[in-house]
Amino acid sequence: MKSPTSLAGRLSRTSFLILVLFVAWIATPFSVQADPPQPEKAVRGPCVRDAEWMRRNHMDFLKHKREETVREGIAVKSESFLSCAGCHTSRERFCDRCHAYAAVSPNCFECHQYPK
């Protein structure tokens, strides 16, 4: 086939172009907001676990702790959710900044209050 002048060929090329443009349009905000988030620095340290470890695993850590605390009644105060606020003073400037950047919305704060 020399030149795809058939209607089907033209249609498929057009639709492919539209698809590319659409994906590019959808993806634009991600490529623009490339700066990593700047969560607030802790006012004192050290954290209950290594900071780098916490960065990756805090969600599993919290989930594990919640299971232990609620179901088995092992409440370790220094490792409780409420103690985060001792060093990370603001939920908005610490938790929310990263969560917003990573587009995750954990529902912790639907019920739990982050101490002020």
Binding site: E68, R71, E72, G73, I74, A75, V76, K77, S78
Partner: peptide, 16 residues
Amino acid sequence: LFAAPANSTSPDSGSA
């Protein structure tokens, strides 16, 4: 369903 927890000796932990 759960084994009885070992009583933590750390001062800041309260346990069932």
